[in-house]
Amino acid sequence: MDFFARIGRSIIDNCSTMGRASILFWGAMVAKPQPTKSIPLVIKQMYVVGVQSLLIILVSGLFIGMVMGLQGYTVLVNYGAEESLGPMVALSLLRELGPVVTALLFAGRAGSALTAEIGLMKATEQLSSLEMMAVDPLRRVISPRLWAGIFSMPLLALIFSAVGILGGHLVGVDWLGVDAGSYWSIMQAAVDFNDDVMNGVIKSIVFAVVVTWIAVFNGYDAMPTSEGISKATTQTVVHASLAVLGLDFVLTALMFGTE
């Protein structure tokens, strides 16, 4: 009986957590807009979660593009198809690696920082003091961070893909001698703006919502102790990464599954 009671308790706890997360999401997304106050807060958070993540995105994008260039070349050259390196690198980055790796890096770099920051604000009674000052923490703290994540991640994913394509060019064209004209022109012919670029952007918007939501909720819901914040930060990275990988399959099936 204990076993069933534990399963039941776990289901109830998970439903309760989902309920609290939904209430937080709804409250933050529909918070009454106050443009003069909200816009500067969102811009500040875009700097924190977006601009400060740029370095890791640029470096990772460059190396992933370079690795793809090298791996792609070694396979394609066997079939005399090394001119197709450009579309291979570009399509892989725009459709999959750009949105997915950016979301994973974002969860590790910005997501964990958001959770820890909000959790510490809770532990040091800053969220309570906002409440007591008649300021809604969902509007003042959660909403700007949520919107900043949603705006930043698609931009970061596009930057990641662009730098990756340049990385592929660096290895494929500049090092291994693939023709530069073929690299760019076949890529231009093969990549469709709506099917490839926009679907990648849609993916990264979905990942942005999910990752940022998980990050801010884990911080807001954290036990206000050092152990609680540590647990919440770990949960953010684990849950967000799993959610991104799971959702990627669903979105890929919906976008490209019937081609």
């Binding site: 040091t124 009674e125 800053q126 309570s128 003091s129 007591m132 000052m133």
Partner: peptide, 9 residues
């Protein structure tokens, strides 16, 4: 009303 928290907050 206002509240002075123990930690200052």
């Amino acid at each position: 009303m206002s509240m002075l928290f123990q930690s200052g907050a």
